[in-house]
Every structure is written in C-alpha cells, then in structure tokens.
Amino acid sequence: MGRRVSDRTAKLEETDGDAGAAETTYAEAIRRALRDAMAEDESVILLGQDTALGFPFGATRDLVERFGAERVIDTPISEAATMGCGIGAAVHGLRPVVEVDYAGFLLLAFDQLVNNAAKLRYMSNGQLRVPIVVRVGQGPLGAFAAQHSQSLQGWLANVPGLCVCTPATCQDAYETMRWSLRQGDPVVFNEDMRLYRSRGPLVEREPSGGTEARVVRPGRDATAIVFGYGVPRAHESAAVLAAEGIELEILDLRFLSPLDVPAIRRSIRRTGRVVCVSDDPLLGGFSATLATIATEQGAGFLESPVVRLGARHTPVAYDRELEKLTYPSSESLATAVRHLVAGGATA
C-alpha cells in the first residue's frame, strides 16, 4: 500500500536540523513534535488527506520521506471511515494521529469520535483503550467563508471521554503534542488556523507539564480567560491597556477538558475582575461555561459581575470585514476590561 510521493515533497524546505531555541512557526512546531514522537515510538502513525505532501499547512511535510508510507498514510476523502479506522487501529496497538484540516470536516467524523473514541473505554469497562490524537484546524483562516471557518472546541469539551487541548504558542504546541502522544485515551488537538504562521521560540524538549492552565501575563486589575488564538489577541489588548495603566492578567487555559478550575479561581481571587473569551457564539458557547465557573469560583471576591465575549450568532461571511466583525477583537477585549476597571458591568 501507499502511493509514490511526488518529488515535490523532497524539495520542500528541510528544517530537521533546525533544533534549539530558534524561532519557528506554529505549524513547524507541530511537525517537529510529530517527527520526534514518531522517532521515539514506532506505533505512531499518521492518517489523513494529503498527509504525505504535508498539505495544506506543512505540519506533516517530509515525514513520509523519513518514516515511509507505512506510517504516513494518505487516506481518501472519507472522514468518517478514517476516524473510525484510526480508533480501531488505536484499540489494536497503534497510536494514530488523525488529521482533520478544518473543523467543518470534523462533523463528518463526529459520530466516530463521539460514539466510539469517547465511549469505548467506558462501555467496555476499561477493556478497550483509544490512544488516538485528532488534529483539528479551528477558527477562521481568513476569507475562507462559513464551512471552513468554525470554532467547535466547545462542542468537543462537552463530550465526556475526550481530552480537548488548545495550544497557543509554538512551544506549547510542541510540548502538548508530545504529551498527547503519550496518553492512553483520546486527545483532540485543536490548532487555531490563525496561529499556523505565527512565529515564536521553540526548544524541542520533553513536555514540562500536564493539563494545567497557565498565567502567561500576570496583572493586578483584571483577568482575561482565553485559549488558542485568544491568547495572542489578549496580549495585544494587554499591551494597549498597560499604556493606560491597566494591568491585565492573561490566563491561557491550554485545555478545555479537563478544565483547570483551581487556576481560574486563583486568578480571579487576585484580580477580582474577569472577562471570559471564546470565538464560538455566546448562545451555548464555551464562554458561557467559563463565565458560570468564574462566577461560582469568584463568589465573594468579584468586584464586578463576570463579562464574556463571544462570536456573533451568524455563520462566517466571506467578506473580510464581516468576518472580522464576527469575532471578539483585541479592541473589544480592551474595551471590556476598561469598563470593568471603571466599575461598569457591561462590555
């Protein structure tokens, strides 16, 4: 099996030797994590469309040259069967990474993910384990329109039996992928597509933590609870606010399930003000869960009611301005924080 891979792959930039703390991209950090995991553990295989070529974001490129078509497996456009196949292979001793380029396409595989990956261990009383990692491209890419621009992390977090991670930096993407490929149960690895070309330092080291949330910018005045692309966006807001004398604390959740509730509690009790941000719609969105938890955990410590920011309740338009208007922005977060600090309750 396995098809001949075009010579084009070999001509792609060779970056394997580029180790150390140099800057790289988020997509390249994922690629290196996959490469290192595959070198360490022969049971790791990749399953997905255009995986050998590394299309469309380069996160698997050149891996077929190193590990062969037995392990870097191109699949037909068959999302449901590919997901099921990955789950079955996981049950029987392999450790598949199933790649779903866009969250919209994940819906074709949702039955397999939710009914099988998430439930096999429980239904079988622990006899079956599903050590699979599902890579999903989330969020908008920029003018790709409604079906390619979705933020379904909250749906995934609602499924018992799935671990849901949302790394925001090159370093965290690398370490969390390495961590994910050592778990015994399914992990959905959400890659916000706006991050693929973002650059940052990367040290290719052993995972330094687990599923804990992290304060990535301490601040005394308010907490922004964010994940994925929400993290760099909150940094932009924080920089603007700092110039105004407002210090925003940024709590990067990293994982939506399990959710680090104690970290939320600690941050709120320091700042007394909180904005919960998620790029899915407010109605039924993950920001609702965060706001509820923040309210419960902040009882007695909150100086203002909890505020949340989410997407407008619309499919995503092709037009770039309309797309931009759909989501929270660094400006809307900064505005919300200013209101909070000024004692107002509305964003």
Binding site: G84, C85, G88, H92, L128
Partner: peptide
C-alpha cells in the same frame, strides 16, 4: 465489542485490520 449505532463499528474493524497488517 458490540455497538449500537448502525454501521458504526465497521470502520473500527478496518482499523484493527490495518493495525494487524502493520504489526
């Protein structure tokens, strides 16, 4: 295992067969 979504276990069996082949 036995599964209650009609057709649901079919690709799981494909995956087990794939793993058996690879191993």
């Amino acid at each position: 295992g036995s599964y209650a979504v009609v057709g649901g276990p079919i690709p799981l069996a494909v995956g087990v067969a794939l793993a058996a082949q690879r191993r």
